[in-house]
Design a protein around this nucleic acid. Structure first.
Lengths: 238, 238
DNA sequence: TTGCGCTATGTGACTTTGTCACTGAGAGAC
DNA sequence: GTCTCTCAGTGACAAAGTCACATAGCGCAA
């Protein structure tokens, strides 16, 4: 049950030489007013964090808003019951504003952000963030769009957790995690956290998929044999 | 299963005489700069909606941001499966920014807002909202605090739906809905929507509570006999 | 190579929750 | 009264979660 915690690495914020072009990598930011860009570039610090670093978590409010340049951050909830569930991922080109904002406002939240890969991000101080929101209407759009996306995603998760069958959700998640490839490196335990369910449930469901020859299982990996079938099952949720 | 839909009343936005003091009723707004207040008061319109009005819903993006002056709005999700779940409520002194923002960004969302009582609200046009965010740092705080609150609430709901036992959740909800009084006017169907579960599940659980003499049931109402016991059970979630 | 220890996975019995297809009971309308 | 709604109760069953183990793969050290 109790998942193994990633070791708390305490965010070794390694400042690096300024990559003057990072702003351009954000679709929402590249259209900013030139002087706003200038501000971001001169005052934002580029930081890196190693894989498995806990970027934020209970009792660890971040000082800065992060804009992810490279890598992905997994945000997951740890329940008092010891259960875990993945809420969403932040990918390169997205920002943590939402989570960060929450953390700043409520420190009794229970979500944590973990670097799934080595991560490079631009850190923007709170004060400067506020400044940017005030000055730039495109920045406001960027921020509110990010909020909106996250919130609709959360709505979706609630819907899935509450009302979707586990076989449908698992099929969906397998296709998603495969990202077009045909093997997935993940333990049943990891998948159970993705869906907020029990490891045994995943094991049994995967066995059923294997029995139908949709997948082939081996220790730590899942090979997809019939993507179509999985997608067909998953479609009942979209 | 299929819950009865409230009739679509299409938001009869009844403009009323300007109540010049409404801004003061918002804890977060009363400390605004005088000129910001002035702007809100002169440009915001006061609107009223009758109980059961659908304030927003699928295919009905609101033009304006609403600040609730009186009454409460229930926001709930309607799943494709026909299931429903209450996500949160907006009370007097709170704003719909979050939901509104979502609706503006993604119109394929599936949440709807329903007036639980007659509702009075101040409507602020989108453009003006943006303006206020730009000008006033206290307004920004107000908005971001609202977002943060909602998001942490959503995190909580996910946790509950995924990991909490139904008896614990029901006990919790009963105490919450009682608001200190000792009788609740609600059908089992309504309670099942509150928790995103099935009516039968609620019925059975309530019967169990009645068997223990914690509550007394009658058509459409629940009388709480042993609030302490309910709270004791509910505490296992907080 | 063998055995050790760790982690991943398999399994059966059981509980809880959700589903389905009904039945019956109040309560207002006529 | 009787009709017609909505609300609540019920039993059989399916799906999902829990618990307590058993077993299996794999790296590694003796």
């Amino acid at each position: 049950m109790r998942a193994v915690k990633a070791p708390r690495v305490d965010c070794p914020v390694t400042a690096k030489a300024l990559d003057s072009e990072w702003v351009e990598r954000f679709p929402g930011l590249s259209r900013l007013e030139p002087e706003t860009k200038e501000l971001l570039l001169t005052r934002g610090k580029i930081v890196t964090m190693p894989q498995k670093a806990v970027i934020f978590g209970p009792g660890n409010s971040p000082e800065n808003m992060l804009f992810l340049l490279d890598g992905t951050v997994r945000v997951q909830q740890v329940s008092e019951t010891g259960h875990e569930i993945v809420l969403y991922r932040i990918n390169a080109g997205e920002s943590c504003v939402l989570t960060t904002a929450c953390l700043l406002a409520y420190d009794d939240y229970s979500a944590e952000g973990i670097a799934e890969t080595d991560v490079q991000a631009a850190a923007v101080p709170r004060q400067m963030f506020d400044d940017l929101v005030a000055r730039s209407s495109s920045f406001r759009n960027f921020v509110f769009a990010a909020f909106s996306k996250r919130i609709t995603d959360l709505f979706l998760i609630i819907d899935e957790v509450a009302f979707q069958r586990i076989d449908v959700r698992l099929a969906h998640k397998l296709v998603e995690l495969a990202k077009g490839r045909d093997t997935i490196s993940a333990t049943h335990q990891m998948l159970s956290v993705e869906l907020g369910t029990a490891r045994e449930v995943i094991s049994r469901q995967l066995q059923e998929f294997q029995r139908r020859k949709w997948v082939e299982l081996s220790r730590g990996t899942i090979k997809i044999l019939e993507r179509n079938k999985l997608e067909g099952l998953a479609k009942r949720s979209d």
